[in-house]
Design a binder for these strands. Structure first.
Lengths: 342, 342
DNA sequence: GTGAAAGCGCTAACAT
DNA sequence: ATGTTAGCGCTTTCAC
């Protein structure tokens, strides 16, 4: 390629004219079909390269009825979990020659609907979507006839594969760990209980406490929006109590960030003054002084599972594949959790 | 929409048949053209909604010659800087009704080339790309006729807009800050000097030192690949010297992560034993005990600038727009840098 | 204000 | 092994 690269894009017909062939022959040669002489294939490939031919995916879509695009709908890219998911999906799709069309919903049902219709205009081969809990029914209706892997959020009224996480498992494992260390005054900061996630987490800690024969102390629980600001104020209020808790479980990534900020501002020593378990999988947890014990989602694994769900179905090879796949949180023990000193 | 939503996709002709019109009329009505009666427009919009019409972007592309897609090529999504960039671009594109087609190059020139051709198949309206320093000439040739905003890496042999960062400015500001605090034994861990970035950083610290009348101590410098592992071993070796440095500048995000890991493993107190400046914009820097002073790239600002470069050119409104836009690093002072105790 | 006709680039069915 | 033909769904030009 090079000199011949002109303003107007090169088409199959251009290559055909160059070689004295017809464009269907060129198409078949490039697609690697049977029944094309080795010589012709070689010449076509060379000419395509020389002329700088790049296929027109629009024309191909029009003919085939669907594109080689995978629509990806995620709530938030700045969340490192979703960033890891996107990375893994990009890798897996690239390996299969699929392209990722990226949409951010910001968990806003209106924007979500707009993005979903925009994704559908590309006639994607499939979709991987983390829908808002309060998605519009219209959004679900648009998605219904599509091959769509629901990610994290499994919408009951939308059929099809779901890759999700057992929401209570993280909370249960975290509480279990703190109880095993001997803690009894354990504070919990979590998302509002009126969300599916918040509800599950609260259930998880309840289960762990019950198994240890302990009761849940409502005074050590702070529920609110899953934001850093709420995490900061919640932990602030917990530290100002007469008797401070000996351990703390911060159950979402933003809450963890805010909570650690509060501890830092008040110069509370971790784990000297208080043991802490955070949520999320930031690599910084490992570089933290002493390290931060965390409950984390296996983002890349979840993404790989979602990709497999999609690809197997694209291949029509879903025989032994379960419709619903539920992974669980991992507890990674580092230095921020030790037995209580009081 | 709803009941009528069938397997086969609804086309303009279906809507036209439904209303006793022809499909060009329906097209014009939906596109909001002049010369369509208000009544027809209303009826068409209602029918489109009722039938669950979703435009076919392939057909539109074929007709128009280009899609409403913006190709985005980034080296790595797990890097929070690029995640922030993607988020901002997704926001800005959504606002203009553009879709983001995402590709990850992993800084591998071969993969980069494959991804670029894949992006071009979509006939994007434009591209925003962070190319590898050692990109294949072929990649640049493919990009040459396109509207492509080069991001971070400005390739000299590729014309067109560039949004980049003054690479030496971060290093200069960091050194300046440490020198101002009174440090003289300042260690520097940076990317290899044979990369454009590594070279610029080294120049930056040289400038700051020269301005303060100090010399560069080669024994306090560690250059290597920009990875966490190298950062960790580099800082390890610095701490094992006879006299440890009083301050440390870790000049990339992965190097910072590895470096902090080394300090944590050796229980080195920050800033008690050593003052540290890290690179990157992780929100965790603010939650760190005492806080981490950092040199950071304004990711969202850079992304917004790139988006503006692209959009203005799409609008043919580039009159007063400079070809090359260079932002600089910000130094954010937190608690990890104090005057030396020795 | 609306209809008729053409054509974008590709692939698949059929013909040779 | 290759050529011929048709048509995917859309927008645009021209005609009325």
């Amino acid at each position: 390629m090079g000199a011949e690269l002109t303003r107007k894009r090169v088409t199959l017909k251009d290559i055909a004219a160059e070689l004295g062939l017809t464009h269907p022959t060129v198409s078949r040669a490039l697609a690697g079909h049977e029944g094309i002489s080795e010589e012709t294939r070689k010449k076509v490939q060379q000419a395509a390269r020389r002329l700088g031919y790049v296929a027109n995916s629009g024309a191909r879509l029009l003919r085939r009825g669907h594109s080689n695009v995978v629509g990806l709908l995620l709530p938030d890219m700045t969340n490192e979990f979703y960033a890891a998911v996107a990375q893994r999906l990009a890798d897996d799709c690239a390996r299969r020659g699929l392209q990722l069309l990226l949409s951010i919903s910001a968990n806003d049902p209106d924007r979500e609907l707009a993005q979903v219709t925009a994704l559908l205009e590309a006639r994607p081969a499939g979709l991987i979507a983390t829908l808002a809990p309060d998605a519009h029914p219209e959004t679900l209706a648009y998605l219904a006839p599509m091959l769509c892997v629901q990610f994290m959020q499994g919408h009951p009224s939308l059929a099809g594969p779901v890759v999700t996480v057992e929401d209570s498992s993280g909370a249960r494992k975290a509480m279990q760990h703190l109880l095993d260390l001997g803690h009894r005054a354990i504070a919990f900061v979590g998302p509002n209980a009126d969300t599916p996630i918040g509800d599950a987490r609260l259930r998880g800690i309840g289960e762990a406490l019950a198994a240890a024969g302990c009761a849940l102390d409502p005074d050590l629980i702070r529920l609110g929006p899953s934001t850093a600001d709420f995490g900061e104020s919640a932990v602030g209020s917990l530290l100002e109590r007469g008797v401070a808790p000996t351990a703390l479980y911060l159950s979402s990534a933003p809450l963890s960030l805010g909570g650690m900020r509060a501890l830092s501002r008040r110069a509370a020593a971790v784990p000297g003054d208080i043991s802490v378990i955070v949520a999320g999988g930031s690599p910084w947890y490992d570089a933290w002084p002493n390290g931060l014990t965390s409950v984390t989602l296996p983002g890349a694994d979840l993404a790989a599972a979602a990709a497999e769900q999609l690809f197997r179905r694209l291949d029509g090879d879903e025989g032994d594949l379960p419709e619903r796949l539920t992974l669980s949180f991992d507890l990674i023990r580092r230095g921020s959790t030790i037995p209580p000193s009081r």
